[in-house]
Amino acid sequence: MPLSISLIVNGEQKDIALEDPRATLLDVLRDRIGLTGTKKGCDRGQCGACTVLIDGRRINSCLSLAASQDGAEITTIEGLAAGDDLHPVQAAFIETDGFQCGYCTPGQIMSALGLIREGIADDDPERIREAMSGNICRCAAYQGITEAVIKANARMRDTQESQS
């Protein structure tokens, strides 16, 4: 009997009849919902390519059963930009060349956003490097990734300040 679950993905409710309880959140996003921006790099929580935000927290979607996430709010890479306006983290990754092949990039960006929201790294490059070490980039665009987090963090802070 299929499990009925509902997810709020990028603000939109998705009711899913899960015919297979084995489906991970990653595979449901990619194969059932069709949001293929989230990538599978290792499928075992060892690379970070599948990082999404679940209820605002960065998580490896490959190590989570979709069934377990019934009712959760999921944010994927597809949910960041507002139309043609890139999210500050996305824009920063482009400016600093924080990627090459781009495959780990959705996970890096979601992880970076999660990190900025955690508020633990500030602008300390060493803390950012450590906090971003769960996202492997085989092209090794690490310098750009770290710079992008600093840049995006500053911009998001400015925006917040100007709004408050």
Partner: peptide, 9 residues
Amino acid sequence: GASAQLRNA
């Protein structure tokens, strides 16, 4: 231990 993502889960 592990990574930030894993520690979150």
